[in-house]
Design a protein around this nucleic acid. Structure first.
Lengths: 201, 201
DNA sequence: CTGTTAATGCAATCGATGTTGCATTAAGAT
DNA sequence: ATCTTAATGCAACATCGATTGCATTAACAG
C-alpha cells in the first residue's frame, strides 16, 4: 500500500486546520472584547474570523466549546504564586490576581464562569483549572510554615479559600464592585486569622 | 358613565388571573423538582399547568421571570437568623441554612443563581435578596458585640461574608461536595477570627 | 341578567440557532 | 506533477423559542 495504513489522524501542524483554529480563537477574543459574552455568538465569530459557521459548529460545537478551547490555548502552565517573603504579601498578590481577572473588561474568567452554568464541558474545564491553581498556591502556605509565621498544622486549603472566596463572592455572586483595597483587606484578614492559629487541623 | 372612569388596573384578586398565576408557579416548582433547571422550559410549564404558552410568555416573559416570581412569592419576609446565645452557634446555623438551600434537590437557589447569569432580571432579584439577608444577619454580630464576645468595632459585613463565602464558593463555583461539618468548620473559623479581633474596622 | 373589558386561548408566523448532504479545497504522500 | 483524503465551504433544511393578530372566555359593574 502506498498510503498510510494506520488509523491514527494525520497531523498537519502548520496546515489549514491550524490556521483556522488560530483565526477562530483570535476572533473569539476580539468579539468578547467588542461585545461581551452575551453577544458572543457562533455567527459573530464566523463573520469575524472568515471561517464558515459549519466548520465552527463541527469543531467546537458551541460557544462554551470555544471558550474552553481559548482557556486551554492560553493556559499558563508555568504559573506560580508570587513570593514576596511574607504570607500576607503573598496572599495579597493572589487576591489581586483574582480580582483583576474578574474586573478586567472583558473578563475571560467571567465568561467561562457564566458558560459553566450552561454546559458541563465548561464547568469541568473551570473546576479543573481552579483545582490546579489551588494546588499550586499551597506553596505559599508551605513557605509561611517554614518561616515560622503560622502553625505547622495549618490547613492550606481552608486558608486559601478563606482568602479568595470573599473576592469571588463579592464580584461573581453579589455582583458588587470591589476595590483593590477591599481585595487586599480580605487577604490581610486571612493572614491575620492564620497567624491567630484559626486554620489549624 | 357606568363603567370605571379612572385608568388604574382593575383588581380581581380571586379571579382567573390569580388562579392562573398559582397554577403556573406550582407547575414551575413541580417541573423544577422533576427535571431540574436545565429542562425547565416554558413549554413544559405550560403543559404541566394547563395554561397556554402565550399567556406565560406575556405575563412572565422568560424562564428567569418565572423563577423571579417564584422567589418573590415564596419570599419569607419574617426571616430572622436563629439566636443560639453565642456567635459561633449563630454562624453555624447561618451556614447550615445556606448549605442546605444549595445542596437540596432541586435547589431553587441554585436555579436562580444559574438564571442570574442569563438575564439581568434574575441577577437583580438575587442580589437584592442577598443584600436583604446580609442586612438582617447583622443582628448576629450586634448581639455578639453586646455580649462582649467580640470587639465593638467589628465589621459585620466582613465577618458575615468570611463566614458564608466559603460555602458558596465550594458549592457554586468549585462545584465540589460539602458536608455539613465542613460548613460548620467555616462558621467556626469565622467566629474564631472575629474573637481574635481580625475583622475590626 | 346584561354589558364591558382585561385576560386567556389559539393558530400562524417569524427569527435565530443548529444540522445535513454534497461539492470544493488544500495538505501532505508518492 | 499527481493522487488521496480530511477539512472546509456552501446551501438548503430542520428545530426551537418567541411573537403577533384575532377569537373567546370570564370577572366584575351595573
Amino acid at each position: 500500500m502506498s498510503h498510510r495504513d494506520d488509523a491514527s489522524p494525520i497531523p498537519r501542524p502548520g496546515g489549514r486546520t491550524a490556521r483556522v483554529r488560530a483565526d477562530v480563537l483570535a476572533a473569539v477574543e476580539r468579539e468578547l472584547a467588542a461585545s461581551g459574552y452575551d453577544n458572543l455568538t457562533i455567527e459573530a465569530v464566523a463573520a469575524s474570523s472568515g471561517v464558515h459557521r459549519t466548520t465552527i459548529y463541527r469543531r467546537w460545537g458551541s460557544v462554551a466549546g470555544l471558550l474552553v478551547d481559548l482557556l486551554a490555548s492560553g493556559a499558563d502552565d508555568d504559573w506560580r504564586p508570587a513570593d514576596t517573603g511574607a504570607l500576607e504579601g503573598d496572599l495579597i498578590r493572589l487576591n489581586r490576581e483574582v480580582r483583576d481577572a474578574l474586573v478586567q473588561q472583558p473578563s475571560l474568567t467571567g465568561a467561562v464562569i457564566a458558560a459553566s452554568f450552561r454546559t458541563a464541558e465548561a464547568a469541568e474545564a473551570l473546576t479543573s483549572f481552579w483545582q490546579d491553581r489551588y494546588v499550586r498556591s499551597e506553596i505559599v502556605v508551605r513557605r509561611a510554615i517554614d518561616r515560622g509565621e503560622i502553625p505547622s498544622d495549618t490547613d492550606a486549603q481552608r486558608l486559601l479559600i478563606a482568602c479568595t472566596a470573599p473576592v469571588y463572592h463579592q464580584l461573581v455572586l453579589l455582583r458588587q464592585p470591589m476595590t483593590r483595597a477591599a481585595a487586599d483587606r480580605a487577604a490581610k484578614d486571612a493572614a491575620a486569622a492564620a497567624r491567630a492559629r484559626v486554620y489549624r487541623r
